[in-house]
């Protein structure tokens, strides 16, 4: 037999299929096999049979955690990231990483000049939420630092709020979806507030943070007017060197 007919031979098909799956068919022979498979259903099926038969060999293959950068590359390659918010978050985080480094440097200089020098404790950011408006534009960035349970909120764009209204920050639980207030916030470019221990617990449990416009203080649930919402992401791992 010659040409395509030759490849109708079951024994040859099986030999080719097994070698293809095993990986010993290389170079041009491998390319030729791939071309043949496109038009030869039986050959494809034989390859699938061998794939299935040999797959159990990987049953005990130890898992190896991929690098963080691998998912980032996949996310950006599939067009706008698997979670667009995460892509934005990463950009923001770079800023905050450097910002916190800068702030630390300033604090260190002050400590040297004014106070007794004490070993500087890096105030690492533990959680970040990039808050977006309805049009998916980032409008606020919330960072949370466990040291001092400090919440910092930066408004990239201030929402429209009437005089009799106020803004309130909320945490949405990832466990049961319940919404808890983290208190009122001022309409200012940069806000900082220390959270209570129970409030920090809400952060650790939060899937989302959101900001609503309220006409009264102390309300139990956010109004329908949510002006910003963002995933609350734990970011300690991101500060370590990856990739």
């Amino acid at each position: 037999m010659s040409g395509p007919l030759r490849y109708q031979n079951p024994e040859l098909q099986d030999l080719l299929a097994s070698n293809y799956v095993m990986g010993t068919l290389r170079g041009r022979a491998r390319q030729r096999m791939e071309t043949l498979m496109q038009d030869n259903r039986t050959l494809r099926e034989r390859v699938q049979q061998w794939e299935a038969k040999l797959q159990p060999l990987h049953q005990n293959t130890p898992e190896v955690a991929p690098r963080n950068s691998t998912w980032d590359s996949i996310a950006s390659a599939i067009g706008g990231a698997a979670d667009p918010m995460l892509a934005t978050l990463k950009k923001k985080l770079n800023f905050y990483k450097y910002f916190s480094g800068f702030a630390l440097s300033c604090a260190l200089v002050l400590a040297v000049l004014v106070l007794q020098p004490t070993p500087p404790q890096p105030a690492a950011i533990n959680y970040v939420a990039v808050m977006k408006d309805e049009a998916e534009r980032p409008t606020m960035v919330v960072t949370l630092t466990k040291t001092g349970r400090l919440l910092a909120l930066d408004m990239l764009e201030k929402p429209q709020v009437e005089q009799h209204q106020n803004l309130q920050l909320w945490a949405v639980s990832k466990v049961d979806g319940s919404i808890s207030s983290l208190g009122a916030i001022q309409v200012e470019k940069h806000i900082e507030k220390a959270l209570t221990k129970p409030q920090w617990g809400l952060i650790a449990d939060a899937e989302y943070l959101l900001v609503s416009v309220e006409t009264a203080t102390g309300v139990a649930q956010p109004s329908a007017r949510v002006v910003a919402k963002g995933l609350c992401v734990k970011v300690e791992g991101w500060q370590a060197k990856t990739g």
């Binding site: 293959t61 898992e63 190896v64 955690a65 991929p66 690098r67 998912w71 996949i74 979670d83």
Partner: peptide, 29 residues
């Protein structure tokens, strides 16, 4: 896209382990 992320979380360790056995190189895997 969320499904891809979930799939990645489930199987990327195993697949990367298989690639490491074949390639013996973290960059390539």
């Amino acid at each position: 896209q969320k499904a891809l992320q979930q799939l990645y979380q489930k199987v990327s360790g195993k697949l990367n382990g298989i690639a490491m056995k074949l390639l013996n190189d973290a960059d390539l895997s």
